[in-house]
């Protein structure tokens, strides 16, 4: 039996973010793309394949004192499109919303066409993609028209972080 005090530490955070409804088995990927391995300050709780009324099973990630940027939220949407983000302040849920994949993705991952202008050294341009399909994910480079599928996108997100 886990002592109550310790259990509270695991289940509740004072301020920070709870990423809920992560696709089962995907929490480690989310952990990686948020670069949490390098984060030596935040206390983090990771739950894998816990019971969920909505999903049967789900993963869960709680990060103390961290609030996600739009870019981070878009990255999570690419890995786990059904995830929800809960912002916690003073132990209370301050806001709750599903991750949303924006129609346009800027500066999150690179175009995998080496000849694309966004891959040329020192040119002042960020890779930019139009999302052409959300399930499965497919994107089109707005500069060179190159198409990338879910595997190419998520593979790169994990590799880069």
């Amino acid at each position: 039996m886990v002592p109550e005090k310790q259990q509270m530490k695991i289940t509740r955070i004072e301020n920070g973010t709870v990423i809920d409804h992560i696709s089962p088995g995907a929490a480690l990927k989310v952990f990686e793309i948020l670069g949490l391995e390098e984060d030596e300050e935040s206390s983090i709780t990771l739950a894998i394949r816990v019971k969920s009324d909505r999903m049967g099973k789900k993963d869960l990630l709680k990060i103390e004192d961290k609030f996600l940027t739009h870019k981070e939220s878009a990255m999570i949407a690419l890995i786990s499109p059904r995830a929800t983000i809960n912002i916690i302040r003073s132990f209370e849920v301050d806001s709750k919303h599903p991750v949303e994949l924006p129609g346009k993705l800027t500066g999150i991952f690179d175009c995998d066409n080496p000849n694309c202008i966004t891959n040329q050294e020192r040119e002042p341009v960020e890779p930019q993609f139009e999302v052409t399909s959300k399930n499965p994910i497919a994107v089109r480079c707005l500069y060179c028209d190159n198409l990338m599928d879910e595997k190419q996108v998520t593979g790169q997100l994990i590799q880069n972080n």
Partner: peptide, 12 residues
């Protein structure tokens, strides 16, 4: 230009 998307960058 040899890079794909170069003209779009120019237009921006």
């Amino acid at each position: 230009h040899p890079s794909e998307g170069s003209a779009k960058l120019a237009s921006e």
